[in-house]
């Protein structure tokens, strides 16, 4: 029997002016799964996940999260749903006027207003420990490297204990070793927190390490789907070109 997907997208369309970015995307993310969306720059990967969290409004189509239609939700209803979702931005998007402690505390406090100051601190430490950066707690984002900022961004996403995590290019701009560390961290998070993740990337190593399943996006359309090994042997030359 087919399980209920945690995210289900049907016939998603999005245009910016005359530019058709998404031309009828269909995808499903199953519970506990890591789904990778691969594609070249400008293929509509980031727009897809921004539509999922309501940062960009879809023109047409349906997006369901845990069975709830996202496209017609009111602002407050959408915020109730966003509590279940962690989002890791391409450049971390840490609040640069706050220390790492304040970055995590700010997010947690807005979610759990009844949590006491004493209860917040252990949660912050726990989240930082899970990304291996507890010693950076009092640093400012500007004092951290790109890789460390992404780890902190992941800790910030994890602190609210999300069911779903969306990763926007988690390894872009990082060296090979740090990229691998981030990819392994994504895998650890999936196992430890039992999260379902959607990972947007064009980094094949990241896709191989993290993805249970891979979708390939070309000019706003999904043209292939499968595991890394299946797609590697695809008959489509364009799909295979990713694996060279």
């Amino acid at each position: 029997m087919e399980t209920q997907p945690i995210i289900a997208i049907k016939n998603l369309h999005k245009s910016f002016g005359q530019n058709n970015i998404l031309k009828g995307i269909n995808l499903r993310l199953n519970k506990g799964e890591n789904l990778v969306i691969l594609g070249r720059s400008g293929s509509g990967k980031s727009v897809t996940i921004k539509c999922i969290v309501g940062l960009v409004n879809a023109d047409k189509g349906s997006i369901k999260i845990s069975g709830k239609e996202v496209t017609n939700l009111k602002y407050d209803e959408l915020n109730d749903l966003r509590v279940k979702i962690g989002f890791m931005f391409q450049n971390g998007a840490l609040y640069d006027s706050m220390s790492i402690r304040q970055n995590l505390k700010f997010t947690l406090k807005h979610h759990t207003r009844d949590l006491s100051e004493e209860a917040i601190e252990p949660e912050i430490i726990k989240a930082l420990e899970s990304v291996g950066l507890q010693e950076s707690i009092d640093k400012m984002p500007a004092e951290l490297s790109g890789g460390m900022q992404k780890r902190i961004a992941l800790a910030r996403a994890l602190i609210i204990k999300p069911e779903i995590i969306l990763y926007d290019e988690p390894t872009s701009g990082l060296d090979t070793i740090t990229s691998r560390e981030i990819s392994e961290l994504i895998l650890d998070v999936q196992k430890k927190y039992k999260t379902s993740s959607l990972i947007i990337t064009h980094d094949m190593a990241c896709a191989k390490i993290t993805g249970n399943r891979i979708l390939i996006l070309k000019e706003g359309e999904i043209i292939a789907e499968g595991t890394y090994e299946e797609l590697e042997k695809s008959k489509d030359e364009w799909v295979r070109s990713f694996f060279i």
Binding site: K50, V53, G54, L55, N79, D80, R82, V83, I85, F87, F89, Q90, N91, A93, L94, Y95, D96, F106, T107, H110, H111, R156, I160
Partner: peptide, 14 residues
């Protein structure tokens, strides 16, 4: 520009 406002938005912070 650095997506900090979007980060607040997706964290359900208005």
């Amino acid at each position: 520009v650095t997506e900090q406002i979007d980060a607040m938005e997706v964290s359900a912070i208005n």
